[in-house]
Amino acid sequence: MQLELRHLQAVCRIAEAGSLGGAARRLGVSQPALSAQLRRIERVTGGELFVRGRSGVEPTALGQFVLAKARRVLSEMDALGAEARAIDTGTPLRLGCILLVLIDGLLAETDLFRSGQEITVDLEDSVTVLARMLGAGRYDAIVYGEVNDHEVVLPEGALARTLIPKEPFCIRLSARHRLAGADRIELADLAGESWMTLVVDDDGGPEALVAACAKAGFTPSLRYRITDRKMHYDLIAAGRAISLSQPTAPAAEGTVMRPLVGAPVTGRIRLAWSRSAVSAGQAELLYRAAARAYVANVGNNAFHKEWWDAHPEVHPAAD
């Protein structure tokens, strides 16, 4: 038997999972089948690659040697595929996103930076779906958000880079609201309001809102979940709801946006890509395009521009 890429992948998955059972689940095979495959691999390499320890399996000295070589080979193969796609400008780069403020600007930026290669873009309501589609090869890269401490689980073979590590969410409310004239709003003063929940409900947003409101002494009434922007804004303008919002969001007639005291809910924006489909150079271009698109919206609200200027540590490498 000669070693194949699937054998190297199996060895790496066993090391990453720390157990044959965990690796089998990741690979989608039975544990007995993986054990038999490992024995065949060990016959080719000339000795045991793993031994059982207190917390699972651990690589032997030979195993560590094989792992190092396997990771290098797999990395080179991923790079080969990604760089070949980059050269073949007839192959579109497939980008999946949730509805973030920067998306419109990102499309214009990618048209500028990726001249000669088509880019397709799909919007999803679910971060979980985005990650799953990235793992399934439906998307080559995704742009998504996470709220407070929530972390999106990415598939095997994905790399990620944080675009914006922190942005304080604000409140959008009717221009006729009793608090519309306030410079900043205490979350506790919004008890009893009807809330428009975030469009994406699996990025940690609703949980973060509920937790923040609990600390402020009340339970929010999550009454609406509207994906249509115009209807979303119209309901708020009519005084029927309020909502959390990205601080870079544009103005909407009949509504105002105000920061929350203490910034109890914050978000971050990340870019993830398949290392076998997107080269390092492509990933850098996408990152810079997304960064420029975000920065272009910073001035939409004066309070966020002031916060942004005071926090250079959160600025992306846009230049």
Rank of each mutant, 00 (worst) to 15 (best):
D319S: 12
L34Y: 00
H304Q: 07
S30T: 07
D201G: 13
E48F: 08
E306D: 13
V44Q: 12
G63W: 00
E151C: 12
D122W: 13
F303N: 03
P316G: 01
R39Q: 09
L8H: 07
E146N: 05
M196C: 09
L62F: 01
V29Q: 02
N148E: 07
E156W: 14
A131M: 02
A191W: 01
L38C: 01
T227H: 14
V121C: 10
I103C: 02
E58A: 13
V29S: 03
A208Y: 03
A23H: 00
A79I: 05
G53L: 06
Y233M: 13
G21D: 14
Q282F: 14
R292I: 01
A293G: 00
A317S: 15
R258F: 07
F303L: 04
Y139L: 03
P92A: 02
M231I: 11
G267E: 01
A251L: 11
Q31R: 12
P312Q: 00
V199N: 09
R258D: 06
P32W: 00
D189Q: 15
V121A: 07
E83C: 06
V261G: 09
A79F: 05
L154S: 02
L67E: 03
E156G: 14
L134I: 06
V44E: 11
S274P: 08
Y294V: 08
L67K: 06
S276G: 10
A289P: 01
I236P: 03
L107P: 08
G145L: 05
E83P: 06
A252W: 06
S279D: 00
L93K: 07
G63D: 01
D202Y: 01
D104S: 13
S276I: 09
L102G: 03
R268K: 09
S274Q: 12
D122T: 12
A160V: 14
A86W: 10
A211W: 03
V200Y: 08
G281Y: 07
R172Q: 11
E109A: 00
L163T: 00
G116E: 02
D201Y: 12
P92L: 01
G22F: 00
P59K: 02
I142W: 02
R71A: 10
A212S: 02
I98A: 08
